[in-house]
Amino acid sequence: MASRMVKVPKLFGTNGIRGVAGKEIGSSLAFRVGSALGTLFPKERVLIGRDGRLSSPMLMEGLAAGLLAQGKDVEDRGLITTPALEFMVKNTSSSAGVMITASHNPPEYNGFKVVDSDGIEIPRSKEEKMEILIHRDKWRASNPPGQRVIREGRIGSYFEKLESQVLARDGVGNLKIVVDTGNGVSALTTPRLLRKLGARVIGVNDVIDGEFPGRNSEPRPENLGSLSKIVREEGADLGIAHDGDGDRAIFVDETGVVQPGDRTLALVEDELLRNHPGAKIVTPINTSMVVSEIAKKRKGKLILTKVGSIEVSRTIVRVGALLGGEENGGIFY
Rank of each mutant, 00 (worst) to 15 (best):
G329L: 03
G235P: 08
L323Q: 01
G13W: 02
P277I: 09
S157A: 13
P213R: 08
V290T: 06
R151A: 06
I310V: 05
G278Q: 11
E86R: 13
V46M: 08
G19E: 07
S288Y: 01
K299F: 05
L267W: 06
L29V: 11
L59E: 04
M88A: 13
T189H: 01
I80H: 10
S117C: 15
M289G: 15
A21R: 07
K72H: 11
G49Q: 05
E127H: 06
G329K: 00
A84K: 05
N205S: 03
L85P: 06
T81Y: 04
L188P: 13
D73W: 07
K129A: 07
I120V: 09
I281C: 01
T39W: 10
G153Q: 09
S217H: 04
G34C: 06
S56V: 13
F31E: 04
G153Y: 03
T287E: 08
P57Q: 14
V312R: 11
I303L: 12
N110W: 04
P107F: 03
P277N: 14
I316Y: 09
G19Y: 01
V114R: 06
L162Y: 12
R192F: 08
R45Y: 09
R169K: 03
F251N: 15
H135V: 07
T255K: 15
Q259Y: 00
L37D: 00
E121W: 02
F12G: 03
P221M: 14
L54K: 15
A236Y: 07
E271L: 13
I281P: 05
I331L: 12
T82G: 07
E233T: 13
R151F: 03
I202V: 14
M1F: 02
L197N: 06
L167R: 13
N286V: 12
R200T: 12
K7S: 14
G325L: 10
L265D: 12
D118A: 09
R148Q: 15
D247N: 06
K113H: 00
P219T: 03
N205C: 10
G256E: 05
E152R: 14
S288P: 02
V258D: 11
G34P: 07
I202S: 12
G320K: 07
G325D: 01
V268F: 02
R151L: 02
Y333H: 14
A141G: 02
A295G: 15
V20S: 10
T181V: 14
F332D: 07
V319P: 05
K126V: 14
E163Y: 04
F212L: 03
V312D: 00
P277Q: 15
I134G: 13
D137T: 09
T264G: 12
S3M: 11
I150R: 15
N328P: 03
E61A: 14
K138Y: 05
V319C: 02
G16L: 02
T287G: 15
L193G: 06
L175W: 00
G16E: 00
R314Y: 05
V20D: 11
E121K: 10
P191M: 09
S56T: 15
K306Q: 15
S164Y: 07
R248K: 04
G71E: 10
S125I: 01
A102L: 06
L175R: 03
V231D: 14
K296A: 12
A321N: 03
R4M: 14
G300D: 08
K299L: 01
S217T: 00
E108H: 03
R215W: 08
W139P: 13
G71W: 05
G278D: 08
T101H: 06
S103A: 12
I240Q: 06
N174C: 02
G78S: 01
L11F: 00
K296I: 10
G244L: 12
P213C: 08
G203E: 07
